[in-house]
Structure formats: C-alpha cells, structure tokens
Computed example of a mutant assay.
Amino acid sequence: MILDRQKRMNTAEIRARLTAAGHSLGLDGTEEGERGVDLITDFINQMQIYEGAMYEISTKLEILDSEFQVQFSHNPIHHLERRLKSTESILGKLDRRGLPYTVEAIRDNLFDVAGIRVICNYRDDVYSVANYLSAQSDIQVLRVKDYIRNPKQNGYRSLHVIYAVPVFLSSGAHYTPVEVQFRTIAMDYWASLEHALRYKTDLPDDKHAEHSQTLLDCARALQNVETQMQTIHRDINGAPQGGEAPTANEDSPIRNATLKGQ
C-alpha cells in the first residue's frame, strides 16, 4: 500500500505560496520582480523533477516487493509513504542555513525535498530491500546513515539512504536525490509517538522528561522483541536474511556532482 502524505504537486498552490513570500523574492513589477517570476517558474520545474524522482523510486520498491512475493511468498514491505517537502518548509530551511531563495541553493544543499518512508515487516527486510534497491544499475547511493545498528541517543532507529535516480525529461536525464527511510513497523510506531512528544510544547518539563525516558526504555524493549520475532521468522520463512547497510559510491561522478554544495 502506498500512502501519499501530501497530494500530488499543485503548481497553482506553489505559485501562490511563493508569491506570498514576495518581500523576499522581489515580486513588485520591476526588473527585480521579473527575476522573481522566473524563480517561481524554475522552482515549479524543479519540484516536478523531484516528484518524478520520488515516483521512480517508489515504483522500483513496488516491483521489488512483488518479486519477493513470487520468490519467497513473503512481502517485505508493509506500506510506503511518499511526500514532497512543502514550499514553506523548503524556504524555512534555506532561511535557517542562510541560503538564498534560488533553485541552485535547493539543488546543492537540500537532499530531502523528495522523501519516501518504507515500512517493512522485519529488520531483515529493511536491509534486504535497501540493498536490492541500491544494487540497481541506474541509481546511485549518495549517503547512508544507519540508525538501526547505531541508534540515536533518544532511542530512534531507522536506516536513512539518499539515492540519486535519473528523471528523463525532454532535456535529458536529471539525476535527482530522494531520501528513503527504511524502518520496521515497530520502529515506525515508536518514532511516531516520539515525534508527537517532541512537538508537544505544553507539557511540564518534568513530565516531558519522564515520557522521554519511558520512550527510551520502550525502544530497547522493542528492539529485544523484534530480535526474537526475527528469529522465529527466519525459521519459518526462506526470505533472504538482512546484511549490512548499503554503502555510498564515494567515487561516483554523479555523487560528487549532486553533493557539490556540501
């Protein structure tokens, strides 16, 4: 099942939101304003490319899931969630980094504009799907952060991989980054609650700290339960066992070109 956490790109809505930021873009009918109009057009075109890259990756994941079902009678992916970062979120991130409102700044510095969350059934599935996807010849692994084997201090676990995938337009192939987060159902369940707590600002500090500690304890307990259930799954199912996380192609010219702003 694929869940789009936002509707597909709405160019009229993007144009309206960028125009609302006119004090920064100079949309005032002058020569500066004309450059602002050009920026809106370039921004919409770039968002179309990000959307295309997101759908390219999600299609690859669907095909992998179907192949697993045929080969092993097991679907490793429980569901997918896709999202394009909102216009406000993109502009806000540029502001926080002191970057200009340009398409070049977005391309060179923001690698999570297009995002997919892959919710798998078991930890083996996380690594198997990530590695099979990474092995495909037309995509590149740009960056890997394995928070499953190396959890964050608060207990967060997930495998983050940034891929570059070609989007073919009339002007040729545009290699575009997509951030993919792989996690199990239990990891996602935990992360959703932790996210809600993090942004719950009206809780007293002592209650917030108490819940944070409880969530850390829960993360460790869930990890133990997942390990036991994984063992049972391995005994009754012939699907591939998980290996190591994918590795970035450090010497890839595509990677170096895509990450030139970092």
Rank of each mutant, 00 (worst) to 15 (best):
L197F: 02
L197G: 12
R198M: 10
R198A: 04
R198P: 05
R198G: 02
R198E: 08
Y199A: 00
Y199W: 01
Y199D: 01
Y199T: 04
K200D: 10
T201L: 15
T201R: 05
T201Y: 03
T201A: 13
T201F: 12
T201C: 04
D202E: 01
D202H: 06
D202S: 07
L203N: 04
L203I: 10
L203D: 07
P204A: 01
P204R: 00
P204G: 00
P204L: 11
D205E: 05
D205R: 02
D206T: 13
K207Y: 09
K207L: 05
K207T: 13
K207F: 10
H208P: 00
H208C: 02
H208T: 08
A209T: 03
A209E: 03
A209N: 15
E210Q: 09
E210Y: 12
E210M: 11
E210L: 11
H211Q: 05
S212M: 02
S212N: 06
S212Y: 04
S212Q: 12
S212V: 01
S212E: 12
T214L: 14
L216E: 07
L216S: 12
D217V: 10
C218K: 13
C218M: 15
C218E: 14
A219Y: 05
A219W: 00
R220T: 14
A221S: 12
A221D: 11
A221K: 15
L222E: 03
L222T: 01
Q223N: 15
Q223Y: 09
N224M: 10
V225W: 08
V225A: 14
E226T: 02
E226L: 08
T227E: 10
T227D: 15
T227I: 10
M229R: 07
Q230Y: 03
Q230L: 13
Q230E: 13
T231W: 12
T231Q: 05
T231A: 12
I232F: 11
I232W: 01
H233R: 14
R234A: 09
R234G: 08
R234I: 04
D235I: 08
N237Q: 06
N237Y: 08
N237I: 12
N237R: 00
G238D: 15
G238M: 08
A239I: 00
P240F: 04
P240M: 03
Q241E: 09
Q241G: 11
G242F: 02
G242P: 05
G243P: 04
G243H: 00
E244C: 14
E244Q: 11
E244W: 09
P246S: 08
P246C: 03
A248F: 11
A248V: 09
A248K: 06
N249Y: 07
N249G: 08
E250R: 13
D251L: 10
S252E: 01
P253W: 03
P253E: 05
